[in-house]
Design a protein around this nucleic acid. Structure first.
Lengths: 259, 259
DNA sequence: GAATGCCATTCGGTAATGCCGAATAAAAGG
DNA sequence: CCTTTTATTCGGCATTACCGAATGGCATTC
């Protein structure tokens, strides 16, 4: 593990990512204080990033914000995400069938990222998540992925994350979560029952690649009261079927398929 | 103009942007040859970018591709683009009314970038453009923006770009284009009549900010044959009206408004 | 299965470069 | 108009990132 990383490139990344966790607009002073760097160092990096379109300065208050080049690159990435291309038609079909919002997430470097969201016609517009991280322990997609990782991986991730509590239903005990992963594997789907937002219930199922590794997940998100004994079975069946079909499209030949 | 830019940050940007103009997956050798850098230099920067999620290595062939962190940042930018937030509802409404695809582009640092696209129900899905650059001389949005820039700016841009020919209808003579900009200003909208793609016709109108500067444009894109003497006037009126409404929302108080 | 070629990766020395602290300029606020 | 705040520039030094060469790993060929 040599890892000869380039300091100034890392610092540029630090600056860009600082916007994600603080505010969409920051001054040089704020950045240098947050990152413990001198103003002149930050200034040099920022001017380089600005010159290239990765940041832009607001002429009103001289503050900086992420720039259009990131938009360009981000959309390029989105367009070339294999999982997105494959899953899109299945998701569309599922939304038409269930008339509820369906999310697609992808497992990327120990993080679950929202890749796509298609809204059902009858839903309220939920705050859009695309590009954001989903917590592992409090979402259907997160749990369905955890459940199908190999146990070492899952344990490593579970012990590395903070089990933040979002509602009174969020599971924050690591042993409880591990136990639930068993039943997820038995059922073939995961449930989030108001664990991240009160009133919101999600049903999620894992997606596997050709090597049989879980790499993504889709979920149906709806107001809890709308998932009654009539609709819930349809949602579960629909999500499981779509996830299996997407997996097969990716070359999966394993046994977690719909019977 | 001192411009003390950080070399390694610029090189990192060079690498990321190389994917946009070549292929979605490149080897270290290809990158170092393209950028005239030693393999070890490229390797150092790439490993840093990979470590931060800006690139990811394909285990199959050891090549690299843009990573998920760019997706995250790009979506963050998209969400905070003021023009997008303001224009979205007007665009939705316009699509419902016309049932044709509507694009929103934004002028950013001498480039016209596709920000949003809403498809009409009856259209074929055109290849998606979000995040990409639109040529100034061969699109309705590009010409409508050029027409309302101040003349120095417009001339500077026109003489700096390559007037690439996409179809037999593409205008490649700079004087012809300048002349057309006059009539665009008189009419209040721009037309692209198969100038970038055969069979495709677009009607575009400019969007102004509170200072009266053109900063964006919306267009309706449809198969040429569908824009007949019946529909064309509706499209023109609709695009002009929506562009004016969006401008007003942005604080515009000027005279390019619909009567 | 040895040998060859190709390419990613590592290493070591060195010159350039990016970093910091201080000075300056510019802008905002009172 | 003066004060305060923050962006920007400058100069010198130590660090760092760059390069060329060597190594390692993988696959293809004979």
């Amino acid at each position: 593990m040599s890892e000869r990383l380039i300091q100034s490139v890392e610092r540029a990344a630090d600056i860009l990512e600082l916007f994600l966790v603080t505010k969409p607009e920051l001054s040089i002073k704020e950045i240098s204080e947050n990152l413990n760097l001198s103003k002149s160092t930050v200034h040099g990096i920022i001017k380089t990033l600005e010159h290239r379109g990765y940041l832009q300065q607001n002429p009103e208050d001289a503050k900086y914000r992420p720039g259009i080049k990131l938009f360009e690159l981000g959309n390029f990435v989105g367009k070339h995400l294999d999982i997105g291309k494959v899953a899109r038609p299945f998701i569309r079909e599922l939304v038409d069938e269930l008339n509820e919002t369906v999310h697609l997430v992808s497992l990327q470097r120990d993080e679950v990222i929202y890749i796509e969201k298609v809204e059902g016609h009858s839903t309220l517009t939920i705050y859009s998540h695309i590009g954001k991280r989903a917590p592992f322990h409090s979402t259907g997609v997160g749990k369905s992925i955890l459940a199908y990782l190999n146990e070492n991986e899952a344990n490593r991730i579970l012990s590395s994350i903070k089990l933040e509590s979002f509602t009174k239903h969020t599971m924050t005990n690591i042993e409880d979560i591990k136990e639930q992963l068993h039943s997820i594997r038995e059922q073939g789907y995961a449930v989030d029952d108001e664990e991240i937002e009160l009133g919101l219930k999600c049903i999620a199922a894992p997606i596997f690649n050709h090597q049989g590794n879980v790499i993504a997940s889709i979920s149906c998100a709806a107001p809890k009261m709308r998932l009654d004994e009539n609709k819930l079975p349809k949602v579960i069946a629909g999500i499981k079927k779509a996830a299996a079909e997407i997996s097969i499209c990716l070359g999966y030949k394993g046994k977690h398929l719909i019977e």
